[in-house]
């Protein structure tokens, strides 16, 4: 299918909007759209996706920092595991068969989607502001209300970040698709904070891989430019909208995205 700049712009805008709302960066949606719907070669699609993830993450971070949603210390701690996972993913890519990779990823996404759907009514915030949040916990302002949250099961969060890094290196996605559900469903982080913190760091994760794709000549410049120009304003809009969307709606949307990705990965594994 011929990919006009306008179509690429709209594709970048749509994936950037959903990506910034959910803290995914949009790569997990963009790669299949580019390869399956627009016929873009996989390496070119992954390179464009990484660039779009950086654009989306950077645009969202500038909005989320102002709103105090980014937990920088938690993001940094998780990024250590993510960067190690990225290296491991790069090394493991030659050892794993593509089918095994898709199957494992599909199963993980299906489990996470079910966990998000089951926990969509559960909040991770504490109304008692005197509670000690620890060094990695924080505060969350929602309208006139202030809440606090504590980080639970940090080793699980680190493991998820390790997997997210590996997935990012292997599949060219930001890794938020693994991090955000685990942080929210199992580590006690409110969905908005999980999404904002993930978005803040996946730009860094994607940049580490993007420079390699650029050096190999995989970045198709006009295609990538059209996608990123669409992604930038849509990501800013998504970051601003996330404040107005109910937390439960965000979780349901995340569960639906996870189910769609799991299905797609399952089909590829067959």
């Amino acid at each position: 299918m011929a990919s006009t700049p306008a179509l690429l712009f709209l594709t970048g805008a749509a994936t950037g909007l959903v990506g910034s709302l959910l803290g995914l960066g949009g790569g997990v949606l963009l790669v299949p759209l580019l390869t399956l719907a627009l016929g873009v070669p996989i390496r070119t699609a992954i390179a464009a996706s990484l660039m779009s993830v950086i654009a989306s993450a950077s645009a969202s971070a500038s909005v989320n920092l102002r709103r105090g949603l980014v937990n920088i210390r938690l993001g940094l701690v998780l990024e250590v595991a993510t960067s190690v996972g990225g290296l491991a993913g790069g090394l493991a890519s030659s050892l794993l068969s593509e089918r095994a990779l898709y199957a494992a990823f599909g199963v993980v996404m299906a489990v996470m989607g079910a966990a998000m759907a089951l926990r969509s009514g559960t909040r991770n915030v504490i109304s008692d502001l005197s509670v000690d949040t620890g060094r990695l916990g924080g505060r969350l302002q929602e309208g006139a209300h202030t809440f606090v949250y504590r980080v639970k099961r940090l080793p699980l969060g680190l493991f998820a970040s390790l997997v997210a890094g590996a997935v990012s290196g292997l599949l060219g996605v930001g890794g938020g698709i693994v991090k955000v559900p685990v942080l929210n469903a199992f580590c006690g982080i409110p969905i908005r904070v999980a999404a904002a913190t993930s978005t803040f760091m996946i730009g860094v994760t994607a940049a580490a891989s993007a420079i390699l794709y650029y050096a190999r000549g995989d970045v198709a410049l006009p295609l990538t430019a059209a996608i990123c120009i669409g992604s930038l304003p849509a990501s800013l809009l998504g970051a601003r909208l996330s404040d107005r969307v109910h937390a439960r709606s965000l979780k349901v949307l995340m569960a639906l995205v996870l189910a769609a990705v799991a299905l797609q990965m399952g089909v590829k594994a067959l």
């Binding site: 660039m51 950077s58 860094v204 420079i211 650029y214 970045v219």
Partner: peptide, 17 residues
């Protein structure tokens, strides 16, 4: 210009770090 745009984008998270 496209190359400058791509490189500036990749450099942004690094500068933020």
């Amino acid at each position: 210009l496209l190359r400058l745009g791509v490189l500036a984008l990749i450099a942004t998270p690094a500068l933020a770090t």
